[in-house]
């Protein structure tokens, strides 16, 4: 039996509540409510995305630092750019258009 509402539904409801509340809050709390909505947007997108296998990066990080990837610099850069773009699609898809922080 699937318990309802599911996580996505609950996140959506809390998000809508915070977005509704925001305009009535004072300046500091309004900003924090916006950040809370931002975090819930990320959570919703991450939940909807197919779960990517968590790569073990320790070996790769050590190799890059020791110069063992210098010979495959462009390939490493391309692979990491793809991975970063996938993370950006979760965090803030508009950023891929060159939008700024």
């Amino acid at each position: 039996m699937k318990e309802l509402p599911d996580i996505a539904d609950m996140l959506a409801e809390v998000r809508a509540f915070l977005a509704r509340l925001g305009p009535d809050l004072d300046k500091g709390a309004k900003f924090e409510a916006q950040v809370a909505v931002y975090l819930l947007d990320i959570a919703q997108r991450e939940l909807a995305a197919p779960s990517a296998a968590q790569a073990d990066t320790a070996q790769l990080c050590g190799d890059i630092r020791a110069g063992r990837r210098d010979g495959q610099w462009d390939e490493t850069l391309d692979a990491e750019l793809d991975a970063a773009a996938a993370r950006v699609r979760i965090v803030r898809p508009d950023h891929l258009k060159g939008a700024q922080l």
Binding site: T57, I64, R65, G67, T76, A83
Partner: peptide
């Protein structure tokens, strides 16, 4: 543990 930052530092 972040390859992108390692690439930047390298």
């Amino acid at each position: 543990g972040r390859p992108a930052i390692e690439l930047g530092l390298r």
